[in-house]
Amino acid sequence: MGIEFNVIEVLKEAVFGSLKSVWSIAIIVFPLMIVMEFARKYKVMDVISAGLRPLTRFLGVQRSAAFPLAVGLIFGLAYGSGVIIQSAQEGEIDLRSLTLVSIFLACCHAVVEDTLLFVAVGANGWLLLGLRTLAAFIVTMLVSKSVKLAYEAQ
């Protein structure tokens, strides 16, 4: 009897706990997806990528890299990579910019969704976002320097 009781209690804890976790994330994911869909339809990305111009200059990449950078930062690595591949095929982006943007995005992507997911379970969102962006910058700058050296050596 005692064992049966425990099994039911454990299952109850497992089922209710898991649904509560899904709920706490769903209330963030729903509004987020709606806002992102509006951003996509109403070409907000063009405005944001224009705002990212100083970032591209700072990273030492071409201006045309701003759009894939913005898409990757906000929508995620898969979307960003899709845009990068497209830009590369159309010859809009050179190898150096392509490499640097890919490295930046590997460290730091989908910042809105990822940050909010962790905030939902109790993390410090500002610290998380700040550190992630800072680290992506440092890594990209370091690679940028070494790539530049490699080019100059030729």
């Binding site: 994330i25 769903a26 994911v29 997806m33 709606i34 869909e37 509006f38």
Partner: peptide
């Protein structure tokens, strides 16, 4: 239609 697409994506992600 944007609102509908966004809601569908929210549903899919959830």
């Amino acid at each position: 239609s944007t609102l509908r697409d966004g809601t569908m994506k929210g549903l899919k992600t959830t």
